[in-house]
Design a protein around this nucleic acid. Structure first.
Lengths: 142, 142
DNA sequence: GGATATTAGTTGTTTTTGTAACTAACAAGG
DNA sequence: CCTTGTTAGTTACAAAAACAACTAATATCC
């Protein structure tokens, strides 16, 4: 009918398909193993990687809405993966810190993520990898 | 804390962030202008681009679940953007065809998508564009 | 000091998705 | 024909996301 423009060439579509495909396998891992949702995994990652921080910090850094973070923190708290401590200077903030169990989960998942990432990237050569990451970073910044 | 692995380097995360960012602006367009959801836009695109086809065909080609397509078709039908006609040979299938209004919406959105895509790609050089699309296609296939 | 505005985080309500069960039509083997 | 199986599509219910309204603490301006 109209052959001037293919949807599989449309960047937002392509990005979305690629993102879905890439997320799938890893998602199964943290879901079945720890009963975590994607936002929980991201929050866990931030705390494990950057250390103690507030929900606000996570929102800003992970580009997540505060309600999503709030619910993820509640879930991780219920799982005893983190502890909350209200700051004396400003009782609106609370510092979030991983527990031992939280850190174990983080260590496991981070290692898994890393090897998962490497496995995906294996299909590309060095030039492609660099270009891909560079372009994606630039797009994510918009 | 742990600096061996950055989350912003984790491909599923990066892809997701890039996909979100890229989808945002265009999403606003079809949402505010036509009250469409993403799946509706995709179904509309398929019908506009490939012509009359069944829901099943769209599922296979767009990699969408049949329930999502079913709901999108209902929504597009309500908006009078398509008509359904049951096939005489096999009354389980129904052919979906855009109405005049549906085609107008498609023409508008396809043009918009195309220039939107071009605008995004402008920030990359030719080599980057090719590599990006090639890698994304490959990832999407998984 | 006290009204007003901000900020961090939570809760409630509505949309949207995901999953599974369902209906209706057809196919195939006996 | 008539059971059994398969297929296209819908519907019902549960999980998750989006959005708005809220609470509690602090900051600011008069």
């Amino acid at each position: 009918m109209n052959d001037t423009f293919e949807i599989s060439d449309f960047l937002p579509y392509l990005l979305n398909q690629a993102a879905d495909a890439a997320a799938l396998e890893f998602q199964d891992y943290y879901k079945s193993r720890y009963g975590m949702l994607r936002t929980e995994w991201r929050v866990l990652f931030h705390l494990g990687h950057y250390g103690t921080m507030t929900a606000k910090d996570i929102c800003a850094h992970a580009r997540l809405h505060k309600t999503k973070v709030s619910r993820a923190v509640t879930a991780l708290d219920t799982k005893r993966f983190l502890t909350r401590s209200i700051l004396l200077q400003d009782r609106r903030h609370e510092n979030l810190t991983l527990t031992k169990a939280g850190r174990r989960a983080f260590d496991d998942l981070a290692a898994e993520a890393q090897s998962f990432d490497a496995a995906i990237m294996e299909q590309f050569d060095n030039n492609e990898r660099d270009t891909l990451r560079k372009c994606l970073r630039q797009l994510a910044k918009l």
